[in-house]
Design a protein around this nucleic acid. Structure first.
Lengths: 146, 146
DNA sequence: ATGGATGCAAATCTTTTGCACGGAA
DNA sequence: TTCCGTGCAAAAGATTTGCATCCAT
């Protein structure tokens, strides 16, 4: 989604275009990784010292509600936000903690599921847990010299 | 998993078999739905007034670590625990909030995924969000009489 | 006997909310 | 002008932790 499309969506859903909203929107669209409200707050504070953590939380929640970003519940203790709304899934490395975008072929099948056992499906969240290619490499290297 | 198998797993992983652990284990194995630490605590307190909420949290976390139960991060604010470790997924109704077990055919394919784009996959969590068959029915009924 | 587990309370962490003020439509 | 949004601080909720005591091995 582009900045302009997102602004339009904000307007169309009856929301005001404010300075914090523009700033947060611009930031997440230009940094398509996985952010927490806290990390966004810490980054933006440098150029926008008056911004409030509460506004960041509320804004991200609003963005999620109107479909500008997606919430990731991949971590048991905090919510991550992803501005990449193109269908893809996530893998969290249980060694280093990094979150990766992944798009296995099965992705498309899941996206197509609209009904399961009589329930309407509107959204599917898929989270993989394992060992990322980097950590995998290090494990191998570590085991060699004994 | 049976009670006996779970006890064996506790022993094999070097953990003590204590009263709270036996009580919580028995409870979750006999009630294969989706519990929070809080809900288990509230229930068990009646027959076991001295049990502590901290113990419930710690015990469930231990059970999850050794594979006796699975953590569900289907809700953005709290963790649910599931003692049904047989491969299946979950659907949360965004109308009534209920969590359902579902087993679409795609389930098996996902369980078989061991490698994605070079990353090792050890576990896959799939959460569906939508409208359950009950709420779906009520919506239809509600719309008819106008 | 002895080290890990429990129970309590306090602490921590994430997220939300109340309220007076300020800014967008 | 008129709400809605913001910023601050305080509150709320979930989960963890410190510590003295207790209990399983």
């Amino acid at each position: 989604m582009t900045y302009e499309e997102a602004l339009k969506k904000l307007k169309d859903t009856g929301n005001i275009i404010s300075m914090p909203r523009m700033t947060i929107l611009k930031y997440v669209l230009e940094h398509k990784t996985h952010h927490t409200a806290e990390s966004i707050y810490e980054t933006l504070k440098k150029e926008y010292p008056s911004i409030s953590i509460a506004t960041v939380y509320n804004t991200l929640k609003l963005f999620a509600k109107i479909g500008i970003v997606k919430q990731l519940m991949i971590d048991e203790s905090k919510v991550y936000y992803d501005s990449n709304i193109y269908p893809h899934f996530h893998l969290k490395c249980t060694v280093c903690g990094k979150i990766y975008d992944v798009s296995p072929p099965i992705c498309r099948e899941l996206e197509g599921l609209k009904d399961i056992e009589g329930h309407i499906v509107n959204d599917a969240h898929v989270y993989f847990y394992g060992v990322c290619s980097d950590c995998r490499k290090n494990m191998t290297t570590g085991g060699e010299d004994t």
